[in-house]
Design a protein around this nucleic acid. Sequence first.
DNA 1: GGACCATAGTCAAATTTCTGACTAATCTTA
DNA 2: TAAGATTAGTCAGAAATTTGACTATGGTCC
Lengths: 189, 189
Amino acid sequence: MALRHAVLAALLEGEHSGYQLAKSFDVGMANFWHALPQQLYAELAKLEADGLVAGREVVQEARPNKRLFTVTDAGLTELRRFACAPSKPSFIRDDLLVKVAAADAVDPAELIAQLEERAAIASGKVELFDKLMHKMRGELDETEYLARGAQVGPYLTCLRGRRFESENREWCTETASVLRARAGVDVQR
Amino acid sequence: MALRHAVLAALLEGEHSGYQLAKSFDVGMANFWHALPQQLYAELAKLEADGLVAGREVVQEARPNKRLFTVTDAGLTELRRFACAPSKPSFIRDDLLVKVAAADAVDPAELIAQLEERAAIASGKVELFDKLMHKMRGELDETEYLARGAQVGPYLTCLRGRRFESENREWCTETASVLRARAGVDVQR
DNA sequence: GGACCATAGTCAAATTTCTGACTAATCTTA
DNA sequence: TAAGATTAGTCAGAAATTTGACTATGGTCC
């Protein structure tokens, strides 16, 4: 029951089509809420049926037509209600962490390779966040933007995403080092 | 299709009952895989049916009887196969982040209160991880343990959990500060 | 002495999420 | 000039996850 609120929050930044939302939920938004395009289209349909968003058809020449959605007053009210409700604790779900938990029983070389691959991906995401945030704040520097800028919400969540990925990269690199050092060395088993 | 691998990884640390696993998945394990007791009991039944874990009945006096599970050779093989398969990218899912994303449209006071509450929870988790890791490594210091200790897998994932929570606490505190500073101040809207 | 917490589970149903395919036009690249 | 990527969606079915019960016994708190 909370993908809807993530969608409402995303639409606060302005009109979006389902397709554009799907992109958002693959980059910025994905850092605290992941969803597939099918889910988003379905959720938008429900939100519209419930009157929380309003869609308008946009006819295009060179592209298929699209529907752009906006949050309605009822949607805003719902979002405010949600903001006051108790939050469920967050959770990560990560295949790679499961593999590391099993590190003592699986092939270290493979694990190291995957950790390094993940570190590289995390690096890429850090850069992506930096670009995104730079674009958001325009000429203002971060302190200025946080103090007086419009729409700090998405900026603050990007900061969180950036930290998460940066830390992820570090941990992956360090963990790979630990495993590499242990490989071939005498260890208590 | 991956709760099973999380369960297998958890059982590598030794025999556990469904009930004990449920506890694990509420603390240490929960930092990279969250699951309710019902799921665990169901998954253990499936794993046993597939021959990946073996259960044995333990009759108790003062407590209800229980079944302790161990990973079988087939289970180990499956875990190794899983470790070599490509990892799906991790995802966070967090109500509170959704609320912060909507920060520009919701009640700041409520959001600040929730951020501070979350910071306190994160603080508690950091301490919990410190205790857990201290217990795991015994007399050895961290560097020693990582180099030569038995079962580094769970220790490494705890390190990740600790970092995550520590960073979470910082971000929550800083974000609350930003929102508090903006409340009442003239802001571009 | 009653209320509640911990141990140790089980069951059914609703909801959410994921997998995989399918349409259809245009724009880009080799 | 053919293949593939991009835009913009839709549909059905399978799998996973959550919600909300319910059974028992023993110990602890007040």
